[in-house]
């Protein structure tokens, strides 16, 4: 009677020790996921996701408080990458589904107030006070911060026209 009890206890002890040791050695930093997500984010801290900066959004996504497609700047590609990292499937629709958009200045409306380029997180808006502004498309993330600042509605997000370079075949639909 004693022997089996002892052996089971011994076994439990050894396994417990192994588990405890493994838990210590293979401990994953709680922030590892957040770090990976921050790495994926645009890093512009534009705030359009309504979280304090990209790290704030990454934390919220990691905690499950924000949707994976909350970042307007990252677009569908970022949403898919985050969804893959989080192991969730990205549904159709949502913010990220409307295709890429970049800021565009309507020259006849711009009064050169210089408010937009003060808020641009990537310095993509160029110009000076009393000068018509322009947007460097290569630097614009399409976050939309400038749109909210503009007093005349001259700057706004416009869909990027599809070019031969960007066009792609759709994924073919297969039978069953």
């Amino acid at each position: 009677m004693i022997a089996p009890i002892a052996s089971v206890m011994f076994l439990g002890l050894v396994l417990g020790l192994i588990l405890g040791y493994a838990a210590k050695v293979f401990h994953v930093e709680g922030d590892a996921l957040v770090e990976e997500l921050i790495e994926l984010m645009p890093g512009t801290n534009c705030g359009q996701c309504s979280f304090p900066g990209c790290s704030g959004a990454a934390n919220a996504i990691a905690r499950g408080e924000a949707s994976v497609d909350c970042c307007p700047g990252g677009g569908r590609a970022l949403a898919e990458a985050i969804a893959a990292k989080m192991g969730v499937s990205l549904g159709a629709g949502g913010k990220a589904d409307s295709g890429p958009k970049l800021a565009q200045v309507a020259e006849h409306l711009c009064i050169g107030c210089a408010r937009c380029f003060k808020v641009c997180p990537t310095d993509a808006v160029i110009g000076a006070a009393k000068q018509i502004h322009g947007v460097l498309h290569g630097a614009c993330t399409g976050c939309g911060s400038c749109e909210k600042e503009c007093p005349t509605g001259a700057i706004g997000l416009e869909p990027v026209p599809l070019t031969l370079r960007d066009w792609n075949w759709t994924k073919p639909a297969l039978a069953g």
Binding site: T44, A81, P121, T122, N168
Partner: peptide
């Protein structure tokens, strides 16, 4: 399928490059 995937892979690489670029801009700002 293969055309689509090649385009998608290319697009993602472009997006990544772009993200790195804008990240640099944001950090500079």
């Amino acid at each position: 399928s293969f055309y689509h995937a090649k385009g998608e892979v290319w697009k993602r690489a472009q997006q990544k490059k772009r993200t790195e670029f804008t990240k640099g801009l944001a950090q500079a700002r």
